[in-house]
Amino acid sequence: MTDRRVTLLFAGITGLTIVVLVFIIGYIMVNGLPGLTLSFLLESPREMGRTGGIFPAIVGTVLLTGIALFIAAPVGILTAVYLTEYTRDTWLPKVVRFGTESLAGIPSIIFGLFGFLFFVIYLDLGWSVLSGALTLSAMILPTIVRTSEEAIRAVPDAYREVSLALGSTRWQTVTSVVLPSAKPGIMTGVMLAIGRAIGETAAVIFTAGSSLRLPRTLLDSTRTLPVHFYILAREGISLENAYSTAFVLILLILAINIAAHTIMNRLTGKER
C-alpha cells in the first residue's frame, strides 16, 4: 500500500515538473509565434527593435558562443588530460579541482565585471565580440575542465595498461584510447557549456555591449539574443518582439542539442 502511495507521489511530482516546463515553453510559443516570420529572422532591427528583425543578434549570439567554445574547449579538455593522465597522484589536480568548483559557482555578473575591467578597459578591446567571447570562455572553462576530467577519470585503467604494454607512449595512449572512450562524457560537458554561454546576459552586456548593427570585425560591439530581449522587455520597446526573440533562442538551443546528439551518435556508432 505504501509503495503505491510513494509511486503516486513521485508521479505527481514528475507531472508537476512537466506541467511547469510545458507551460513556460507554451506561453513563450503562444506569445512569440505570431511575430516569427522569415523577415523577422533575416532583417536588421529598426526603431531600436520595435520593428524589423533580429538578424544581427543571431549573428552576435552564434559568433560569441562559437568563439568562446573555440577557445575554452581545447584548453579545458587538454587541462583535464594533464590533470588526469600526467599529474594524477600529485597535489595539483586537487588544487585545480577546488578552483574550478569555486569558479563554476560564481555568478556570471562577476565574470562580466571582470571582463569589463580586464578585457574592455585594461586591454583596451572595448565593447566587442572579442571581449565578450573571451569573458564567456573564462566563464565556461571550469565546466568543461570539470566534466572532461570526470569523463577521462572514468576510463578503465586496464585500457591504459594494455595500450602502454603494447609499446605506445603516454600521449599515443591518450589520443588513441583514452579520449575516444571519454568522448560521450566530454561532449555532455561541452553541451552544458554551450547552454550556459548562449543564454548568458549579464556577462555579455558588460563586455560585448548592445550594438544593433551587424558586427563586421571582432572588435565591433554586438548584442546577443538574450541581451536583445532583455532590453526590449526592460525598456518596454516591444513585448511581442521580445517573446519572438526568446522563442528563437529556445529553437536555437534545441537545434544545437539535436545536432550535437546526432554528431555524437554517428561518431560513437561507427566504432561499434
Binding site: A158, Y159, E161, S163, A165, L166, G167, S168, V177
Partner: peptide, 30 residues
C-alpha cells in the same frame, strides 16, 4: 620500445573499445 619487445598478456582479457581489427592493429599503428 622495451614494451614493444616485451609483450604482455593480462589476467583479465581486455578489449580496447574499438573493432577486432583495430585492437590487433593498435600496436603497429602506434
Amino acid at each position: 620500445e622495451l614494451r614493444r619487445r616485451v609483450g604482455m598478456v593480462f589476467a583479465l582479457p581486455v578489449a580496447l573499445p574499438m573493432s577486432i581489427f583495430s585492437n590487433v592493429a593498435h600496436g603497429p599503428r602506434m
